[in-house]
Design a protein around this nucleic acid. Sequence first.
DNA 1: GCGAGAACCGTACCGGCGGTACAGTCGGCG
DNA 2: CGCCGACTGTACCGCCGGTACGGTTCTCGC
Lengths: 213, 213
Amino acid sequence: MRKGEETRRRVLDEAETLVLEKGFAATSIDELIAATGLTKSGFFYHFKDKNELARALIERYVEADEKIYDEVFSRARELADDPLQSFLVGLKLLAELMADMPKGHPGCLVAVSCYGERLFDRQVRDLNREAALIWRRRFRAMLGEIAEIYPPREPVDLDDLADFVSAVLEGGIVLSKALQEPSALSRQILTLRGTIRALFAPARHHPPASADG
Amino acid sequence: MRKGEETRRRVLDEAETLVLEKGFAATSIDELIAATGLTKSGFFYHFKDKNELARALIERYVEADEKIYDEVFSRARELADDPLQSFLVGLKLLAELMADMPKGHPGCLVAVSCYGERLFDRQVRDLNREAALIWRRRFRAMLGEIAEIYPPREPVDLDDLADFVSAVLEGGIVLSKALQEPSALSRQILTLRGTIRALFAPARHHPPASADG
DNA sequence: GCGAGAACCGTACCGGCGGTACAGTCGGCG
DNA sequence: CGCCGACTGTACCGCCGGTACGGTTCTCGC
């Protein structure tokens, strides 16, 4: 039992790296087992097919992703009481986190799988949907608190705005990959931060140089 | 010469549909030639390998994409003189265009290829980069005109803001696919429109119901 | 109308990959 | 000791991308 989980984890680790590097289809089971020292039979003992590997990969990815967001935004809560300020701080922390990755964000497995091949079955697609809805709920909660205090300058649906945050993150990853500029993602997050501030922050009479926080 | 281009076009048409439906790797040459009535030799007469197919596909896609943007934003120019207003009109037209696709946006080939497999060679990656830079220049030009008249409420880098537009579009596509909600993309575009307005439009003293345009 | 090239067709073949089948092995634990 | 979980080893299948190459048909310019 213990040994099995250990092996499974090692395979998933290797798979995650390779998939984000080269894509799912281009990651062969052969190189996966070569890298982990398993045999083909051993691999299929743990995963009945490549689809199941994908499912496990995404599940694990979404969990880890959630953990990161939890940490970032709870830290932001500690640093600022006001919901708007704390959200802005959270975005800045997130941008810093992304900027600290020298090779850029490795990529979002949800995007890989929902964009990529329909090798993937309904289970995987439902997993993707669930992930997107989790993101929506998270950001929606924070934006709800903000909107209660600061009326938005433009009429916006809060669910859409929550999705907007996810969209910028996903799009930022795509763009930084397309541009081959790892820093693009963190700049997109900061730009998002600016637009959120413009949307909610009360008018400053004559915006001077910068009053960052 | 003429016949060749015709066949090539038919293959590319079929390939584009299938690739956006199932991904590049999951689209086999066999089904491609079955759908077009070609033979394998015929296929490899036109494309020396799958990489070249991908390259041709992306080139064509980016061109068509540019044409659409050209039309939308030149139409927007006709409808409004003010650069900000015309940009907002353009985004609304774009949102309507996306909303009119019953199955949602078929997907962006640039994202497919830059996310996907490193089957793709340097040429393809450079093509992706070029596409992203074209988008940047396009939106940057429009935003530049806007910023000259309307000072942004928050300090923003105009190149980043131009990329922001691309990011929301790319992210919106990813999200609408993940959520399996075709309408998500057009709502994201409208949300972007709201944030752009919040960023540039002069304060309205007490924003009433709506003064859309 | 004729020769040349473009635009294919047919066939055979290769290696890699996902996946199946199934028998055997080895270690730990009750 | 025997069972079970965690594998190994081997053999095999069909699909797929890609190569090689010879033959055929269509088209267009002269």
